[in-house]
C-alpha cells in the first residue's frame, strides 16, 4: 500500500513538473496511434460497413473471423509485422524496422479488425432500419454503404475510440517492431514496460497515469463532440 501511494505521489509530481522527455514520448504515442487509427478508419470502417450491408456467400465466415480477430494478441501482430519488415523479410529492402512507420503499420493491423467489427455491427443495425427505403429508391448496395457510413458517423465514433484505446494501450506490437529505442521509437507503453523491468515501479505508474489521462482526455473530447452532434441531428 505504501508503495502504491508513493507511486501516485510521484506520478503527480511528474505531471506537475511537465517533464520534457515525457512530453516527447506522449507526442510520439499520439502520432503513432493516431495515424494507425486514421488508417484503421479509412480501411476498417468501410470494410465493416460492406460486411454489414452486403449479402454474399462466405459473409458469415468473414464476420466470425473478424470478430475473432478483435482479440488478436498484439504480440502476434508484432511478430508477423516484424518478420515482414525485417531485412530478411519480404519488405526488408525498405528498411522500415525499428521506425515509427513500422509501429504505425503494426498498430494499423491491430485496430483494423476491431474497428471493422464494431462498424459491421453498427451499420448492420442501421441497414435493418433503412433497407426498404434505400432499396425502394434504387440505391445500389455500394451506395447504400456510403449513405449508412455517413448516417452512422456519430455511432462510429465508438469504433474510432475503441481503436484508439487499443492502439494507445498495446505494448506487444510496438515493442517488437519499434524496438523501444530512446528518443526514436519509445512510446508510453514501452516506456512503462522498461521502467517496470528496471524495478522503478513509481515511475511506471506515473507514466501509466499520464497514459490514462491522455486516453480520458481524448474520450472526453469525443463525448462532447458527440453530444453536440446529437443535439444537432437527434
Amino acid at each position: 500500500m505504501n508503495g502504491l501511494s508513493l507511486a501516485f505521489s510521484e506520478a503527480f509530481s511528474l505531471l506537475a513538473g511537465f517533464d520534457h522527455r515525457v512530453a516527447e514520448i506522449v507526442l510520439l504515442s499520439l502520432q503513432v496511434s493516431g495515424l494507425a487509427v486514421l488508417f484503421g478508419t479509412l480501411i476498417g470502417l468501410p470494410l465493416g460497413a460492406c460486411l454489414g450491408v452486403g449479402r454474399f456467400p462466405g459473409r458469415q465466415v468473414l464476420v466470425v473471423l473478424l470478430n475473432g480477430c478483435m482479440g488478436l494478441p498484439s504480440v502476434v501482430v508484432g511478430v508477423v509485422v516484424y518478420l515482414i519488415l525485417s531485412r530478411s523479410g519480404p519488405l526488408g529492402e525498405f528498411g522500415l524496422l525499428y521506425s515509427a512507420t513500422a509501429m504505425v503499420i503494426a498498430q494499423t493491423f491491430l485496430v483494423v479488425p476491431l474497428m471493422a467489427a464494431i462498424a459491421r455491427q453498427v451499420v448492420e443495425d442501421a441497414w435493418r432500419d433503412y433497407e426498404e427505403e434505400l432499396t425502394a429508391m434504387r440505391f445500389r448496395w455500394f451506395d447504400s454503404v456510403r449513405v449508412l457510413l455517413h448516417d452512422c458517423r456519430h455511432s462510429l465514433m465508438v469504433a474510432v475510440l475503441a481503436g484508439l484505446g487499443r492502439a494507445m494501450s498495446e505494448v506487444g506490437a510496438v515493442m517488437i517492431v519499434g524496438g523501444n529505442i530512446d528518443r526514436s521509437t519509445r512510446v508510453m507503453t514501452t516506456a512503462i514496460a522498461l521502467e517496470t523491468s528496471k524495478g522503478d515501479l513509481p515511475l511506471a505508474i506515473a507514466l501509466g497515469t499520464v497514459l490514462l489521462g491522455v486516453i480520458l482526455l481524448l474520450n472526453a473530447v469525443a463525448y462532447v463532440l458527440r453530444q453536440w452532434a446529437t443535439r444537432r441531428y437527434a
Binding site: 433503412y130 429508391m137 434504387r138 449513405v147
Partner: peptide
C-alpha cells in the same frame, strides 16, 4: 422500369440529416 416507381412507407425512416439532405438523397440514384 428501373426508375419511375416511388414508395412512401407507413413509418418512413429519415436519415440523421437535414430535411433538404433527406429529399436530395432520393435524387442520388438518378
Amino acid at each position: 422500369p428501373e426508375f419511375g416507381v416511388a414508395m412512401v412507407f407507413q413509418q418512413p425512416k429519415m436519415l440523421r440529416d437535414s430535411l433538404l439532405g433527406n429529399v436530395e438523397l432520393a435524387l442520388r440514384p438518378l
